[in-house]
């Protein structure tokens, strides 16, 4: 798998996958739906899929001494690699906002979602949606990327809307406290989201492999 990840990075990856990691800095923006940072990280990965499709990467990979299903695993490993870098950066920025910048005026009066463990949980759910909707959709044909990405875009909008709306419900305002409140509960939710991300990614990888094995290249 190390060789396949190296192949993805050296040949298939678009520079935009790395450049869009800068969108994690959106975590610091007040008055902005910061969950869009997770969408842009996935949008960067989407460009690598587009790049790989144009370079006929699937055929190249299938001809290497690997199983046909390894083509799918390679894409998942690369996607998770980028997503986890993005998550680590967002986690650091969230910690910064919850500690040093907790009492900064723009965050205290921020009507939109603040960076908290709940925010990180939603980031993982958006990632899981990308893996479960876009990647499995892509491997139905091995080349169509438009419709699967549109479906992922709609799912992201719903998740962003849910994340932004949650703290407006009676009794849930604590979710948006800049310094973090009821951290045990929030970290528990983050742990559940991490499980959903891990299990969802593994499951969607299996589904994508099953679909791809029947694709005629």
């Amino acid at each position: 798998m190390k060789k396949l990840l190296s192949k993805e990075i050296r040949l298939a990856a678009s520079p935009l996958s790395w450049i869009f990691l800068a969108a994690t800095l959106m975590t610091l923006l007040p008055g902005y739906p910061i969950l869009m940072g997770a969408f842009f990280v996935c949008f960067g990965v989407f460009h690598s899929f587009q790049n790989a499709r144009e370079a006929n990467d699937t055929l190249y990979t299938v001809l290497l001494p690997v199983k046909k299903t390894d083509c799918v695993s390679a894409k998942y490993v690369f996607t998770c690699f980028i997503q986890l870098i993005g998550f680590a950066l967002m986690a650091v920025l969230t910690a910064l906002r919850m500690t040093v910048l907790a009492s900064a005026a723009p965050y205290v009066g921020n009507a939109l979602m603040n960076a908290t463990p709940l925010f990180l949980a939603f980031v993982l759910l958006i990632y899981a949606a990308f893996n479960g909707i876009f990647i499995t959709g892509f491997f139905k044909t091995g080349y169509k990327i438009g419709m699967p990405f549109l479906r992922f875009g709609i799912a992201t909008l719903l998740l962003v809307f849910a994340g932004e709306a949650l703290h407006f419900f009676p009794g849930l305002a604590f979710f948006n406290t800049p310094g973090g409140e009821r951290l045990g509960l929030q970290l528990g939710i983050l742990a559940i989201a991490a499980l959903i991300y891990a299990a969802g990614t593994l499951l969607s990888c299996r589904v994508a492999q099953k679909r791809f094995i029947r694709v005629d290249l």
Binding site: R10, L11, A55, N56, D57, L59, Y60
Partner: peptide
Amino acid sequence: VDYYKRKPIRKL
């Protein structure tokens, strides 16, 4: 060869 037409052969 019908893949990676814009990558140098050495890299391929």
